[in-house]
Amino acid sequence: MCLAVPMKVTEIDGMEAVAEVGGAKYRINLTMMPDIQPGDYVIVHAGFAIEKLDEASALETLQIWQDIAEFDQNKQSR
């Protein structure tokens, strides 16, 4: 039940916003994340944005494992 998914904020209207995921649009509440801007990714739970997704951090994790995976593949093909 504590699941929460990253959605992209497209419109902001006061304490409410429209956010998208996989082509579907949702109305979300920004009470807990008042500084969100359009274009930000937010983690949404029970209709509320509870945190902003830190894209740099997401990309960093992915980059580390991409590098390791490439290294593994090169090792195999050698």
Binding site: V5, P6, V21, Y41, W65, I68, A69, Q73
Partner: peptide
């Protein structure tokens, strides 16, 4: 495509973590 979800399901990356475990 679900951004920041699909990437974390990438089988190649998963495999590298499993190898290290």
């Amino acid at each position: 495509m679900l951004k920041y979800i699909d990437e974390f399901r990438n089988p190649n990356l998963v495999k590298s973590v499993v190898v290290r475990i």
